[in-house]
Design a protein around this nucleic acid. Structure first.
Lengths: 216, 216
DNA sequence: ATTGACGGACGTACGGTGTACGTGCCAGCC
DNA sequence: GGCTGGCACGTACACCGTACGTCCGTCAAT
């Protein structure tokens, strides 16, 4: 059994595996070291500290986004596919999602999605300031959506009824709308919800686009 | 000096103060107890554990939202003011924002904003499913926006240049758009950005509204 | 007035955490 | 052959959440 020589990459992937298996709370230097069959302090030869390790996790997850961008496609389709790509990794690493969105990364991994998005929006004819605004808007929507989707499953148990275990848990007098719409609030088709949001944003942007074109 | 008798409320506000002063990482039972001039274990007479305490913090912050809803106003204005109210507390308790959005609350404090939003959307003529969709969309956008605004300042230092310390830090060959738009990406007028997003969402919703009305 | 129960403040203790620091092994180079 | 530098490792320390036992003030019933 040739134990290959421990590297930052091996440590990061071990951390990712551990997070996905047992949640972010289970991560500790000792735990990761044990997972790798290695002394705790050996980790510090490849990673300056735990925080940097977690940044590495976020980077690694983010860099697995598969952008299959077709420059010839309609810009709306390109936006759609990029939004979906972003969301797809969140589903591949659900327990890591919180980590990814809660750390702003200055590395290449964090910049590439922005680069792609800016490129397609510029090619669609938006000027710089507008393109930046659009990207920020889309990222806000995507991050917020992913947080909701993931926050629903902190234990990863398929709890569909969320905070509304029963309709009687919420007082209809205080919260008439919430209690009336409890069934709708309890069940959430995340896919449909996400697609709806993306379409609505794209449509809104298209309108704004046409309006600017018209004022030329 | 009459030391008033320690209560869940006092503990929670001490925690909030501590978080705002020194960040979320500074919170520990021992630290909070010291802040209150009290033994550590005394806290557990009023709070079952740290997690519940943090939930209490999130609830307290959330319940400070000031909804000055005018039922006679235009529904778009009501949506605007609700979105702004949500954002305002995030600016009042910037270091607590992450806590608030990362915990889904089943309490009244968490439900009230949803109730308000549903009520205004229903009064605007949306049916149940559409209203729920809209609320989810808005919350996703708001949460994502707040995370960006707050994530920019984890140290609360007014770092305006973010991840782009200098334009030369990012390789123009790899990231042409990012490097070209670096000045725009570096500086962000959060207020304007938020208002832009809210207006765009409202406009998109209005279009969708009109379309549904037309198909009657 | 005495007693009893009880709630809340507190100290101690245990297992776990991140990581600073020193030690020893082993490969590569002079 | 001896030196040097990198890497695995153990020990140690300060801090964490919290289970548990203790003590004391207050109040009810006797």
């Amino acid at each position: 059994m040739t134990t290959e020589p421990l590297s930052r990459a091996r440590i990061v992937t071990a951390a990712i595996d551990l997070i996905e298996r047992e949640g972010a709370d289970a991560v500790s230097m000792r735990r990761i070291a044990a997972e790798l069959g290695v002394g705790v302090m050996s980790l510090y030869n490849h990673v300056p500290n735990k925080d940097a390790l977690l940044n590495g996790v976020a980077e690694a997850v983010l860099s697995e986004i598969e952008f299959t961008d077709d420059p010839d496609a309609d810009w709306t389709d390109r936006v759609r596919s990029q939004a979906r790509a972003f969301r797809q990794i969140a589903h591949h690493y659900p327990r890591c999602t919180m980590l990814v969105v809660s750390r702003q990364l200055s590395s290449a991994a964090g910049l590439l999605p922005v680069e792609r998005a800016l490129a397609t929006l510029r090619s669609a004819g938006f000027d710089g300031p507008d393109a930046v605004r659009m990207v920020r808007l889309f990222i806000a929507f995507i991050v917020g959506s992913l947080l909701r989707e993931v926050g629903v499953t902190p234990t990863f148990a398929p709890v569909h009824h969320r905070h509304l275990a029963g309709a009687e848990a919420v007082d209809p007098a205080l919260f008439p709308e919430v209690s009336a719409l409890a069934p709708l609030l309890g069940a959430c088709d995340h896919d449909a919800e996400f697609e709806f949001g993306v379409e609505l944003l794209i449509q809104a942007i298209t309108v704004l686009h046409a309006r600017k074109e018209g004022t030329h």
